[in-house]
Design a protein around this nucleic acid. Structure first.
Lengths: 228, 228
DNA sequence: CAATTAACTAATCGTATGGTTAATTTCGAG
DNA sequence: CTCGAAATTAACCATACGATTAGTTAATTG
């Protein structure tokens, strides 16, 4: 993206080489573009290499601006990071919540939920890694916030759904709802986290055909595994 | 060589009454202990926070020595990191290979394999995170080496075992062996990666009772999920 | 028991990092 | 037209990092 058509054609006077000088740039719609470019660059770099491994200079260079712009728009590195995470999680949650709330029983709605999850992970492949790195890992910067904001509800809701199925006799009654929930999450998320290796070692391409087959496979494996 | 004459308890950290001066310390048992302490500290810190986020000073302080010792024993940061990874992977593989080679069929030997895996992850909780971070993730420093050294064999062996069970009619014949392998790996590893969050959100304690119950749960879930 | 080597600390060096400020240019409202 | 606010760069600062060296003490060796 970001084909700065407007900016690349400098007006007739004193054509400047690419290295710009100080001052507000020409063009009336410059404002939100730099901010967005920083968020995008930050998202890609942070998720690929981790918070500390990426320098402000690198992000700025990638976004085509000066490190001082990060200070201008986000205060500091952590501010950029937080803003980036907020944006990313909001995108994911928007998709997931729809399928989750429309799910009456786990047996019925599981297929839809898996379609949404695998679809999200296929469309934005860097998200699973970001989650693992920043939420689950020991020092994840987003951990506390994630637990307080989302995980608590999710962890209360899904095992309860499993328990409901058990009580109704559709799942085995010796099943531990929390373990079942963990297993489902693991078998769903892990293959996307392991994607870079799996693609090379198993020769699997993560296209739409795979996604669909995988979602179906996971649904069946889980439902038959827990069935009474 | 036997670098750990005395079972490597991580007590190296707690012994430091006097701020020592320069010079070789007394007692003949000093040699391999510092090296081991550095490897241990590096393992814990690197796996919790990532390569770049941990400073040599921090590792040295944790191990109770001076940063120069890292240079002395390992040359540089990358040298310590490589040595630590080698040691960690060797430990895991040593345990896993035994159970894997003694496994005739997947139905029979799966219980043992799961016991070994979950046992390893319980005994050294930082290993799963390290694997995820350094092997699976995009920037993983260990990725290429891991693929060439272990993953290729593993990825050829285990799906073949699944296929064998299918051919013998013990597993469903519409099962994709590679997907089954991925699912099994995911449901086994993920709960240990997510441990910090799971402990808080689900209130699960990762003790021996949990480990045993989880291994059993996983075995059943998988075997019934793939059963014909 | 001297000479050498092993194991260690203290001090330091150059560099890159996160963060800040002052200057500079343009926009937009009055 | 003017002037304040917005948006940007260049230059800078203090700090922490990885790495190295010089020096110190204990153990080993011949």
């Amino acid at each position: 993206m970001a084909p700065r058509t407007r900016e690349s054609r400098r007006s007739t006077r004193s054509r400047r080489p690419p290295p710009r000088g100080p001052g507000r740039p020409e063009g009336d719609s410059g404002h939100p573009e730099v901010r967005a470019a920083l968020l995008d660059a930050g998202g890609r770099l942070f998720s690929a290499r981790g918070y500390q491994a990426v320098s402000l200079r690198e992000i700025a260079r990638d976004a085509g601006v000066t490190p001082a712009m990060i200070h201008y728009y986000f205060g500091d590195k952590q501010g950029l990071y937080d803003a980036m995470l907020d944006e990313a999680f909001a995108r994911v949650l928007k998709r997931v919540r729809g399928a989750a709330s429309a799910m009456a029983g786990l047996g019925e709605g599981l297929g839809d939920l898996l379609d949404v999850l695998t679809g999200t992970f296929t469309a934005e492949p860097w998200i699973p890694g970001l989650m693992i790195r920043e939420v689950l890992s020991e020092e994840g910067r987003f951990r506390e916030r994630f637990i307080g904001q989302y995980a608590s509800q999710m962890a209360a809701l899904l095992p309860a759904l499993v328990k409901h199925e058990i009580d109704d006799g559709r799942f085995r009654d010796d099943l531990d709802p929390r373990l079942a929930f963990l297993s489902l999450l693991g078998m769903t998320v892990f293959p996307f986290v392991a994607r870079p290796v799996v693609e090379r070692v198993l020769g699997v391409k993560y296209d739409e055909r795979f996604r669909s087959a995988f979602a179906d496979h996971t649904r069946r494996l889980f439902l038959e595994g827990v069935g009474s």
